[in-house]
Amino acid sequence: MSSRTPRARRTPRAPRTPAPVPFTFTFDGRPVTALPGQSVAAALWSAGILAWRTTRHGGAPRGAFCGIGTCYDCLATVNGRPNRRACLLPARPGDAVTTQEGTGHDR
């Protein structure tokens, strides 16, 4: 009985969750790597990108601020649709994220 224990321990343990497989989407045409379940904002942050919107009046750069969907600073245009909250929206393979200028309807 005791001799079997070491053998059992040597058996490789199956990983509890499979390693997440990264995928890519584009930001203003550049490829960005994301992990499944990551928000668009988190993936952009991970790529070192901090701003993906310019304001309507001053044209100032903005990105994620509150991180929980409250402040609406992180609005981005995703697959042609403006005003998506990047901090809430899960990134999906092949998404085309573009900098939102002003209301997103200006051009």
Binding site: A41, A43, A64
Partner: peptide, 19 residues
């Protein structure tokens, strides 16, 4: 850009694995 909410930074880290 680069100024973020403290709770937001934590939320993005916990939920999105991003700093």
């Amino acid at each position: 850009p680069g100024v973020v909410g403290a709770g937001g930074a934590q939320a993005m880290l916990k939920g999105g694995l991003a700093l």
